[in-house]
């Protein structure tokens, strides 16, 4: 295989991987049962999907500017996504928007009794 052929295969694999992960994240957002579980779907598969698609662009179009931009995108996404999830999770816990019946342990309860929730 020529160099271009190898590159095409790598590109195709990365695009499919990214599409699959983003699809799974979307399904998780709908299927998971409460806000706190949905946040997991919104952060992790989404980050890996983004990494794959950005790596894909960098492989198919390798130049200094693409690669540096790819690093910047991945760095800031992986820095901000957990923080956004943290803010939503904190608000959801404190306002009682979560299902306590699917928790096997709740160590936070003694620190901040959630209020307003239907227990």
């Amino acid at each position: 295989m020529t160099g271009d052929g190898v590159r095409d295969v790598i590109t195709a694999v990365l695009v499919l991987l990214s599409a699959f992960l983003c699809f799974a994240a979307g399904v998780g957002l709908i299927r998971f049962t409460d806000v706190l579980s949905r946040l997991h779907a919104a952060t992790k598969p989404q980050i890996l999907g983004l990494m794959a698609i950005v790596a894909d662009v960098a492989v198919s179009n390798p130049s200094v500017s693409t690669i540096t931009l790819a690093f910047a995108i991945v760095f800031f996404q992986s820095l901000t996504a957990p923080m956004a999830a943290h803010m939503v999770g904190r608000a959801a816990y404190r306002t009682g928007h979560f299902r306590s019946d699917i928790l096997v342990a709740d160590d936070l309860g003694p620190f901040i009794p959630p209020h307003g929730g239907k227990s």
Binding site: H40, T43, S78, A81, P82, A85, H86, G89, I112
Partner: peptide, 11 residues
């Protein structure tokens, strides 16, 4: 910790 298996920081 927010990126590794199954955890999100709540507080």
């Amino acid at each position: 910790v927010g990126l590794v298996p199954g955890s999100i920081v709540l507080d």
